[in-house]
Amino acid sequence: MIWLASGLYMVIMDLDFIHGDHLVRERPDTFMAGYSPEVGFADILSNYPEADEIVLANWIGNPVYRIYTAEGSLLVDAQDGTQRSPLGKADAIAVAQYHYARSRGVASATLIETEADAPTELQSRKLPLWRIDFDDAGATSFYVSPHDGTLVARRHTYWRIFDFAWMLHIMDYDERADVNNTFLRVAAGMGLTLSIIGMWLLWFSFNRRKRINGI
């Protein structure tokens, strides 16, 4: 029954809505033709020689470099080469508001640094993260990485119910991610047996009294 009810919730809720697509504004975020950053890839490499990957991108309207190293990521301004990361509260809020599609205000912004403080809705995402809560009906939360400045996750009430339904559905009550847990395997095996027995019994139950002369 729990499978059925949680399954029903998951199929009736539109997946894009659950993903929070309606909360995020489409931003074109492309460069103007002919744009040339003050600081080039080679400059960045000489400043950050440990970089494995460097990305030139638009970040809330400003050109930046995202630098990925074995240790983590950094955000560097492409105009003057200053390092923007780790982001402070104001920057994190600016990122969240840049992507947020509605006009409601920010209710709170907190930096989550340790696993102990991390809500389950973050799943296995890397910490630290800024959590920006909006003052809207869906209790929207945006999570912003202080290192590369990206919007990492968006959560709202229906997502949280969906996640709860998913937990019930896969019966992994701790991590909500492991579909191979023994509990689920045993329960699914029993469920399969039950449904086969059910069909067998159904066959009997249609085999009702035949007292019609001639039929």
Binding site: T30, A33, S36, G40, F41, A51, D52, I54, V55, L56
Partner: peptide, 22 residues
């Protein structure tokens, strides 16, 4: 990466470019 002689791709040639990844 830093051991290589990187040729800078800039300036951006077209207007519809999202990002350039090295």
């Amino acid at each position: 990466l830093s051991s290589l002689e990187i040729r800078d791709p800039t300036p951006v040639e077209r207007s519809n470019i999202h990002e350039i990844r090295l």
